[in-house]
């Protein structure tokens, strides 16, 4: 039987009394490209952050490629996962952040080989070769020796994408990857993400405000509101024929804004 690449099973995430994700059930198939849209505070970014284990959850289980992430099998029962277990499962996931989070004291190339060398144990030569291939792919081979402070926002985000790919993830999480960019730099980053989506090699979860882009690259779009997934469907269906009143409201506001 084929299992989904990502599965959320009754996941509850709360900050004190405020529930950000309410018993979320959600799954993404292997190779599927899913966009998550919704108003701010809807919990859409939280989906990515709990999956990347940047934040803990209060209840429920997340599965990656059929294996539990926040829990593990022990003597036939599920118990809270050990750090080693989390690290092993987490290695299948990579994340691209809104604010890039490049290491400012390392060049673009050093950013890309840091984890492959020190986490995966690749040789420096091997990692450099692969990093240069990836930097070429995102169009930044000539900037390999530059520090993040010497790069534009769009260039930094493309380096961040190359850095993520260097760890060979199967799942890519994009957390509003163009929100911190000046408008003229959005295109160059979206182009890279589009190529990744089209390649079919990655399962992609994309949180975005770029509705046009979401419609173009996604296999499926999910609308989140108030910590729940309110509606989901194929892009054409969801954007052109929204059923839920909140979604209709949201879309009309977004389209009005531009």
């Amino acid at each position: 039987m084929t299992h989904p690449m990502i599965q959320f099973d009754k996941v509850l995430k709360a900050y004190g009394a405020l529930q950000v994700l309410k018993d979320l059930d959600f799954s993404v198939g292997k190779g599927e490209v899913v966009s998550i849209i919704g108003p701010s505070g809807s919990g859409k970014t939280t989906v990515l952050r709990v999956l990347m284990t940047l934040e803990g959850i209060q209840d429920g289980t997340m599965y990656v490629d059929g294996e539990p992430l926040n829990r593990m099998q022990k003597n036939g029962v599920l118990v809270d996962a050990s750090k080693a277990h989390v690290r092993r499962i987490r290695s299948k996931i990579g994340m691209v952040f809104q604010n890039f989070n490049l290491f400012p004291h390392m060049t673009a190339l050093e950013n890309c080989i840091e984890a492959p060398v020190h986490t995966l144990g690749q040789s420096k030569a091997e990692a450099t070769e692969e990093a240069m291939r990836l930097l070429t792919m995102v169009g930044l081979a000539d900037k390999a020796g530059h520090y993040p402070s010497q790069l534009s926002g769009g260039q930094q985000q493309r380096v961040a994408i190359a850095r993520t790919l260097a760890m060979h993830p199967e799942v890519l999480l994009f957390d509003e990857p163009t929100s911190a960019l000046d408008p003229e730099m959005v295109g160059e980053v979206l182009e890279v993400i589009r190529d990744l989506a089209k390649s079919g090699r990655y399962t992609i979860l994309l949180v975005t405000h770029q509705m046009g882009f979401a419609k173009e690259v996604s296999d499926r779009v999910c609308f989140f509101d108030g910590g729940r997934m309110v509606e989901q469907g194929a892009p054409d269906q969801l954007f052109d024929n929204p059923q839920n009143a909140r979604l209709q409201q949201f879309l009309s506001k977004v389209l009005e804004a531009g």
Binding site: G94, F97, N101, F103, H105, E114, H118, R163, T164
Partner: peptide, 25 residues
């Protein structure tokens, strides 16, 4: 905080996180 988050996303160990990413900065 984003620096720590990046090291988690890249599966960098806590020791390397401190010695190679956080302390140099």
């Amino acid at each position: 905080r984003g620096q720590t988050e990046a090291t988690i996303a890249l599966n960098i160990s806590p020791w390397n996180r401190m010695t190679r990413i956080i302390l140099p900065q």
